[in-house]
Computed example of a mutant assay.
Amino acid sequence: MDTLIDKVAVITGGNSGIGLASAKLFAREGASVIITGRRAEVVDAAVAQIGPRAVGLVGDVADLSHHDAVAELVRSRFGGLDIYMANAGVNTITRSPDVSEAEYDAQFAINTRAVFFGVQKMQPLLRDGGSVILTSSIASDKALDGHAVYAGSKAALGGFARGWALEFKTRGIRVNILSPGPTDTAILDKLGVPPSEREAFETAVAAGIPLGRLGRLGRPDELAQAALFLASDASSFITGVNLKVDGGMTLL
């Protein structure tokens, strides 16, 4: 359990879902982990779950000053950084004719702008040979109803990753994308599916996933294992790729 021994990782949105599962796994593998989130009580609860290797910082990635605070914490407490996982994101499912300016701006502020400026702030702190992981979505490649704005905000990450993979190559810093398919996280509760219909909803979604034939969605721990691969030396010769962890959904 020492894949990330003595490494330092930052995971934005590390207080829930895929981010929390990744933070737990990284800590078990020996890393010191800084997680960020918007609600203090949720961040504190996540830190307690992750254990003594975790540090929490409350803030909103859409506020660019938050990235300065993260950088200062990394600099003062650890002196440098090995893994940056830009994971915080938001998805509001609305068909294009009904999208408001506020909804559009919120998704791009969190899913796109925050990723760019987060990496900009962390890059000087990243040690040579480090890893940057951008959490995207299969929606960036697969058309999904009501996802046009979300898909656009996530598609930009592909351009970021390819550009940064070349910009950072002389330092051996790898930049890759992790694209989840439908995953059983708290975000499903925000879609407005009544508890009484949750099982039927998941079964219907799983029917469109080749590996969902058993009637389930992806699990956060499965995404965390993929993130660990991208964070560790196991992917030492991989950069600029989009790793889709979707049970084959984009094949259909």
Rank of each mutant, 00 (worst) to 15 (best):
M1W: 11
T3N: 11
L4M: 06
I5N: 15
D6I: 04
G13R: 01
G14Q: 07
S16P: 01
L20A: 03
S22R: 00
G30L: 05
V33Q: 01
I35F: 09
E41W: 07
A45E: 09
A45Q: 08
V47I: 00
A54Q: 06
V55D: 14
V58A: 01
A62D: 05
A62F: 05
D68E: 13
A69V: 03
V70P: 04
V70D: 00
E72L: 15
L73S: 02
R77T: 14
F78G: 06
Y84A: 07
M85W: 06
A88Y: 04
P97V: 09
S100Y: 05
A102Q: 13
Q107E: 08
F108D: 01
F108H: 02
F108Y: 08
N111T: 03
R113K: 14
A114I: 08
F116Y: 12
Q120G: 08
K121L: 05
M122S: 05
Q123L: 15
S131D: 00
I133Y: 02
L134Q: 03
T135K: 02
I138V: 14
A139W: 06
A139Q: 06
S140Q: 11
K142E: 12
K142L: 15
A143I: 14
A143C: 12
L144G: 12
D145A: 15
G146P: 11
G146W: 09
Y150E: 10
G152H: 02
A155V: 10
A156H: 07
L157Y: 01
F160V: 05
G163I: 03
G163T: 02
E167K: 11
F168M: 10
R171T: 06
G172R: 03
R174C: 08
N176V: 05
S179G: 10
S179N: 06
T185C: 00
I187D: 10
L191A: 13
G192Q: 13
P195G: 09
E199W: 13
A200E: 15
A200K: 14
G208P: 09
G208E: 11
P210F: 12
P210L: 11
P210I: 13
R213Q: 15
G218L: 09
P220E: 00
D221W: 04
A224I: 00
A224G: 03
A224S: 01
A224Y: 01
F229C: 03
A231K: 01
S232R: 07
S235C: 01
S235F: 00
F237K: 08
V241S: 10
L243I: 02
L243G: 00
G247N: 08
G248N: 06
L251R: 11
